[in-house]
Nucleic acid binder design. Sequence first.
DNA 1: CGAGCCCCTTCAGGCTGCCGTCAGCTTCGC
DNA 2: GCGAAGCTGACGGCAGCCTGAAGGGGCTCG
Lengths: 219, 219
Amino acid sequence: MRILLIEDDTTLGAAVRDQIAADGQSVDWVTRLDAAADAMSATSYDLLLLDLMLPDGRGIGFLKGLRTRGDVTPVIILTALDQVSDRIEGLNAGADDYLVKPFDLSELSARIGSVARRYSGNPNPILTHGPLDIDLAARSVHRDGRHVPLTAREWALFEAFLARPGQLLSKAQLEEKLYAFDAEVESNTIEVHVSRLRKKLGSAIIETERGMGYRLGKP
Amino acid sequence: MRILLIEDDTTLGAAVRDQIAADGQSVDWVTRLDAAADAMSATSYDLLLLDLMLPDGRGIGFLKGLRTRGDVTPVIILTALDQVSDRIEGLNAGADDYLVKPFDLSELSARIGSVARRYSGNPNPILTHGPLDIDLAARSVHRDGRHVPLTAREWALFEAFLARPGQLLSKAQLEEKLYAFDAEVESNTIEVHVSRLRKKLGSAIIETERGMGYRLGKP
DNA sequence: CGAGCCCCTTCAGGCTGCCGTCAGCTTCGC
DNA sequence: GCGAAGCTGACGGCAGCCTGAAGGGGCTCG
């Protein structure tokens, strides 16, 4: 698999390059967007690792440009900006995943592997939970074999439950998971999203513990 | 798991403390390095969360001091400095992980869980008490392997007993624990809830000390 | 640049079941 | 055996939850 790394921080870049190489992949490393464009016209890559803050522009624009030209090469965003808005912007721009710096190199390997599997035809690991088949990497859920589309918030909420199966999660905890550290929510948003998840995935999927919170139901 | 939080920002500190508590861990929070040293000489902790910039010195020095004295308590660094040099310095000084502010509280939980697992091997600590298996984080109780659902009040009461095993707790103390300061309870609410707990968990679980209060029974 | 669409948040009305209260009974200490 | 303290079944009120609907913001497409 050929990977193009676009990162201007030389220390981090070298570390990432070495990690990928150690995983047995082939890497090209550039530090500017124009160099990235050159490299991509010369070679076809299977995956881009894209820093968002670069000397000659923001990576978001570069990514949007790619997608509007119909390029579907998988992209993982590397960013120090860990505002939720930036992640959402990145994903909306067509990124497949993101990593917030600083990150573990092993985590990087895992995400690369996940994206690679998604595009290589090898099936991702599928969780099954009752009538549900969940592909975490592809962010897709099937209910009785039928694909159920989830919105961003719904997926985030569902993921929070999947991460701690059977554990009780208070509304406060779920809000922390869905919103930024400082975000203020002053209504029953969580209830509404839980309600929508139940409607889509089945009413038994999430159990209510009155006065305490919610938990993932038994399969 | 006992966690010591060393952080001088009161807003962030309170948020972190609440998150950890919500995860079912026990937290002590200090704002200075000398207070941290005091706390550590008084108690043994399973994990330190260490801010690097503190009113009475840099956390790095504190951490190095710990390690040279042979202390191997896991340390997660919390820092606003997201320079690579600082991370490397922190890790070289003997930190096990780091979090760059601002960070998601859920991410904090994940890292704590990861360190905890690395050092204990258990995903969630399970207390056993006679026929009961208690998972504080998940807020679940199993009796002879069967899940016993508790309501909010029942859980709060049960937690109060678990926090002080074997210790006598007066009805007044329990009321304080269950209700806000200004609470007015003018009946036998505690008796009723104790009765309900006994019915669910077994009659031996809570012993009555006539005229004095209640205590958790022996396993 | 405007229209249309989708998603998210907010709100309100309705419902469920938890909790506090009470009463009658049991247990305990003396 | 007597009084006080504790136990527990029953029940109504209301806090907490559910959900349909509406409004607004952002994105896409023409």
